[in-house]
Computed example of a mutant assay.
Amino acid sequence: MAYKDYYDVLGVQRSSSEGEIKSAYRKLAKQYHPDKNAGDHKASERFKEIGEAYAVLSDAEKRKLYDQYGHSGQVPPGAWGGAGAGGGSGFSSADYGGVDASQFSDFFQGLFGQQGQAGRGGFRGGGAQVNLDDLMSGMGGGRRFVQNVEGELQVTLPEAYSGSDETIQVEGKRLTVRIPAGTRDGARLRLAGQGPGGGDVLLTIRVLEDVKFDLEGTDLSTSVDVPVDTAALGGSVRVPTMKGDVSLNIPAGTSGGRRMRLKGQGWPSKTGAGDLYVKLNLVLPAKLSDAEKQLYEQLKALRSGQTTQS
């Protein structure tokens, strides 16, 4: 699989700040979000590519390693917490019970993202790690060849909220991973005995930023556009929640920027769900009809007269 440069994917410079990278990600994620491109396979692939690039470039340590080594996974000793893989790795066949290190090139390529991806799951973002001392344990003296492997699995905010089944691939073996509902960023999952030789697969869950919602603690926040006449006279608007759209009553005389709370529509937890806070953005019609212009002129004159009298 040919990989594009992550900086090119996000359209930023290598010297871009963390804020610039985040801004570029948000803009592109909103443009290619599946909700806006239903049935568009290219947009879906682009969205995944954008998420993968952001997962690496938004993490200071991963970005540093990516700047040094790119997608290749050809890292020197110690770069990933143990001896490196491939060229310049600094160990010989004698180091690990007479086994030639070149036998593991395919294994490392899979971990670093160039093989072994399966659908939406898989080790994405080049963040998989292996400790070779553990990986090679037991290779000499007839002992068992056991590999414990670590990786990161990216999921969307809705998937983390509701729970989902993801598919990953380790050494050619497809594994289904159940993401529990309410999973938070940084959560760890252990697939006991599913690694090569009966070792474990240890996954760190990374929840991608969402274009609609922000999560802080157990509270979610979003924003919704409110027509100016609805804000002035009162009415209702549709508001997105993690469970689907709901109707929100807008009191008459509501000002732009006001935040309203939907109790219990936040993130689930053992102590109960948080709340959803909705910021109201007042919007005018992009183009006024002649009748609307006349009404606004009448309103302007009326308000001007009230101001003069007061």
Rank of each mutant, 00 (worst) to 15 (best):
L132M: 14
G110Y: 01
P76L: 08
E18S: 12
Q103R: 15
W80I: 09
S269K: 08
A94G: 13
G81Q: 02
D210T: 05
L282E: 03
K293C: 06
D219G: 08
Y54H: 10
S23G: 08
D134G: 04
D133A: 13
K48E: 13
S92N: 10
L175M: 04
P227F: 11
L191I: 14
W267C: 07
H33E: 09
Y277M: 10
A118Y: 10
G163M: 01
S221K: 13
N249E: 14
F107P: 04
D8C: 02
F91W: 15
K4P: 04
Q147T: 12
D200I: 11
T271Y: 09
Q114W: 06
K287Q: 11
S223L: 03
G81E: 01
W267L: 05
R63S: 01
I250P: 08
K48S: 10
K243W: 05
K4R: 14
V278G: 01
V207R: 00
S255I: 10
V170G: 07
G142P: 06
V246N: 09
S164K: 03
Q294S: 15
L282T: 09
V149I: 11
R188C: 07
T183N: 02
G116D: 10
V246R: 15
S44N: 04
H33N: 14
T308F: 14
A24K: 10
G141Y: 12
I168R: 00
A252K: 13
G266L: 01
L208R: 10
T222M: 02
V56K: 07
D100Y: 08
S16Y: 05
V12W: 04
A29K: 06
D275G: 01
G235D: 04
G305I: 00
R206A: 14
G266Q: 02
A94S: 15
Q265D: 04
P285H: 10
T307G: 01
G198D: 05
I179K: 01
Y3I: 08
S17K: 13
S72N: 03
S221Q: 13
G98W: 10
A231L: 13
A2C: 00
Q103A: 13
V12C: 00
Q154V: 14
S269D: 12
S23Y: 08
R190Y: 07
L215F: 04
D225Y: 07
V155T: 02
D106Q: 04
L282F: 07
Y69D: 02
E297I: 06
G82F: 05
Q68W: 09
A286K: 00
G186R: 07
L288F: 14
K212N: 12
R143F: 11
F107Q: 04
V170P: 08
G140C: 05
T241I: 06
D290I: 11
D275C: 00
R174Y: 08
R259P: 02
G266E: 02
I205W: 00
A94E: 15
A79W: 00
I168N: 00
V12Q: 01
R174H: 09
D290K: 14
L280D: 04
S15E: 13
Q129Y: 02
S102M: 06
K64R: 12
F104C: 07
Q194C: 03
T222D: 00
K270F: 01
A60K: 12
D67M: 09
